[in-house]
Design a protein around this nucleic acid. Structure first.
Length: 644
DNA sequence: CTAGGGTTAG
């Protein structure tokens, strides 16, 4: 902080202020403090701070500073207007923007190129593009920036044809114009048109490459993103974070983490955006240790925990089974927005704290934060976990009535699951039939899952009839129905369904589990004997079964289909891939180390029971991530509260 | 004036 005797020299103070405001991380606060100590800030000082706020995530103070400026008789200049207009644009504050426009005309600032550019952007961002165009046509001295403002204005409004017409008319197109046009196509998802322009443009800068990298990722072509990333001549920090994000959004969290490590190795310092994305990658993987490392990195580098990083942290800790850490971050978070609340509510719900999640939702409503559709996914999921079907129904109806949010397919999914689990199969069927676009196969699959839980053969058959029509290529559907028959001992029917499946050439996805030991991933399939430590693994499993059975454990062989001898069925279940991986973890890791296993399918009932018992009898922590949920086994119980 | 960000059922 500046010594007070220097405060008398406006020039030094302004330089210090400018330096402070321009620093990358969290210095806006210091700039503000410095500004507040200046006895009589001049126009330059105001402009510096107004600009800093206008470019920050929370531009509101720019508007307030502008009012304060007028009140203190400090004359705004065109620089001031540019950034106050930018703040209005960012906030879509059309009222303030129009007022400002009127004020500008009165004080003679309405028609120079600088002001025109700001006004065009402001009107475009506020959805009044036609007003922007009028000003654009009226302005006599149009520079390239002016054309570009108009161009990106059209692009922001999704009016790509008009943008393109302007682009083709432009007397001189600079790299920025090309980039703006390319970005416009990227936003509407026309990656082909974007690529065509990219190939045609005379000079490409990092932004051109980065735009396209992100563009391919948005369209699901992560491979193309990577190709460009490798080809581009000079990668900057945005290129790296864009590529990391591309991997995360494309569902390749492992690759995202690898790239993050490589980024650090080549000496590129990860910034805010990279941290946010890589935290999301850790969430997807359930990679707690890496997540903790990333968190520590952010702290070491004094990154401010704003609502975005805060949300990413909450989600990461929650998805890694550390619900207490997630709550701690949430409680400390100064600015909670709907994302942070939603992540926390959903996190509590999947960790089995349904009641606490609902409590938090009430607090959120009391705090005046408006929930969105995603929030309700968490809320309905929480009701399911808490066994509160009636409550779920109430929330489901309140979505539209109270908040005007139309329930989407995923909300129907939650409800079908909640009703189905509670045994209200008929109600669940009615809901599926009442859902928008009622042929959505996923809802029927959920329904079939409920039929399986309750051994409801009749509805199961009815549901499958629908499913084979809409989802004829999914082997999982047949497996579910044959499981239903099997639980009822209807082996002929079970076999018939299996035969049907086979005759159509459909296969069930093979389950496999993996465990990482010293950076090396070991993979196991059911009954796998290919691992070098196979003998030790099977010996340990035999020992485990001995102790478990003494403790009263009875194998649950429900998922094994065929009417083979009970003893043989036990053997199939006994060597499920997750059990092999857990046993391998037990012989490879220290007794205190948590055993982290990832499974590609849902964990079966028996493996779940066995994992709980191992955690108690062997005093080991087991963290098993399956296709849907995170299971955190400790002292004989699981974080999922036996709901998954 | 152009590039990178967080929450979504089974």
């Amino acid at each position: 902080m500046l010594r007070i005797d220097l405060m008398d020299d406006p020039f030094s103070v302004n330089k210090a202020l400018e330096f402070c405001a321009a620093s990358p991380h969290g210095s806006l606060h210091h700039a503000r403090k410095l500004f507040d100590q200046i006895p009589q800030p001049n126009t330059f000082a105001y402009n510096t701070l107004i600009r800093a706020y206008a470019n920050s995530p929370f531009p509101v103070p720019s508007l307030r500073l502008f009012s304060q400026m007028l009140y203190c008789n400090r004359a705004p200049n065109s620089y001031t207007y540019t950034f106050v207009l930018k703040a209005c644009a960012r906030l879509s504050a059309i009222g303030e923007g129009e007022q400002l426009h009127g004020f500008m005309i009165k004080s003679g600032f309405g028609s120079d190129a600088f002001s025109t550019n700001g006004l065009v952007s402001m009107y475009a961002s506020c959805g009044r593009i036609e007003l922007g165009r009028k000003l654009f046509d009226l302005s006599v001295e149009k520079d390239e920036v002016c054309w570009n403002s108009m161009l990106s204005g059209y692009a922001d409004c999704g009016l790509l044809d008009q943008a393109r017409r302007l682009f083709d008319e432009m007397p001189e197109k600079g790299t920025v114009s090309w980039n703006a046009m390319i970005n416009g196509y990227v936003v509407i998802g026309d990656i082909g048109a974007a690529r065509e322009l990219f190939d045609r443009m005379p000079e490409r800068n990092a932004e051109s490459w980065n735009t396209l990298i992100a563009g391919y990722a948005k369209c699901g072509f992560v491979g193309m993103s990577r190709k460009l990333f490798d080809e581009m001549p000079e990668k900057n920090v945005v290129s790296w974070s864009a590529m990391i994000t591309a991997y995360v959004q494309g569902g390749f969290p492992k690759e995202a983490l690898d790239l993050y490590e490589e980024m650090k190795r080549v000496g590129m310092a990860p910034n805010w955006a990279a941290i946010v994305s890589v935290l999301s990658a850790c969430s997807q993987l359930g990679a707690l240790e890496q997540g903790v490392d990333v968190h520590a990195y952010a702290e070491r580098n004094k990154m401010k925990v704003d609502s975005v990083i805060g949300t990413a942290l909450i989600d990461m800790y929650a998805k890694c089974g550390c619900i207490d850490r997630a709550l701690e971050i949430f409680d400390k978070l100064a600015s909670k927005d709907v994302f942070s609340w939603t992540a926390m509510i959903g996190g509590l719900a999947v960790n089995g704290h349904g009641a606490k999640a609902l409590e938090l939702f009430s607090k959120m409503e009391e705090g005046g934060v408006r929930p969105n559709g995603v929030t309700f996914v968490g809320v309905l999921c929480a009701c399911s976990h808490a066994g509160q079907v009636q409550l779920a129904m109430q929330y489901f109806h309140s979505m539209r009535r109270k908040y005007g949010i139309e329930p989407q397919i995923e909300h129907y999914g939650c409800m079908v699951d909640a009703l189905g689990r509670a045994g209200l199969i008929q109600e669940a069927v009615s809901l599926v039939q009442a859902s928008p676009g009622k042929a959505d196969p996923e809802l029927w699959v959920t329904l079939l899952g409920a039929c399986w839980i309750h051994g409801n053969v009749n509805t199961g058959e009815y549901v499958l009839e629908h499913l084979v029509k809409v989802k004829p290529d999914d082997g999982g559907v047949y497996v579910l129905l044959s499981n239903i028959y099997a639980t009822r001992g209807q082996w002929d029917d079970a076999r018939r369904v299996r035969m049907q499946m086979k005759s159509k050439g459909l296969k069930k996805v093979r389950g496999h589990s993996s465990i990482e030991i010293n950076g090396l991933v070991h993979e196991f399939y059911v009954g796998d004997k290919s691992h070098p430590k196979t003998v030790e693994i099977y010996q340990l499993l035999a020992d485990i079964y001995c102790r478990l059975k003494l403790a009263g454990y009875v194998p649950n062989t429900n998922p094994v289909l065929f009417d083979i001898a009970e003893e043989d069925k036990e053997n199939v279940v006994a060597y499920h891939s997750e059990k092999l991986a857990i046993a391998f973890g037990m012989i490879s890791l220290d007794a205190q180390a948590a055993i982290r296993v990832v499974k590609n399918l849902r964990v079966c009932q028996d493996c779940h029971t066995v994992a709980k018992l191992i955690s108690k009898l062997y005093n080991r922590e087991i963290i098993l991530r399956d296709r849907n949920v995170f299971h955190y086994f400790r002292d004989g119980s699981c974080s999922c509260k036996d709901y998954w």
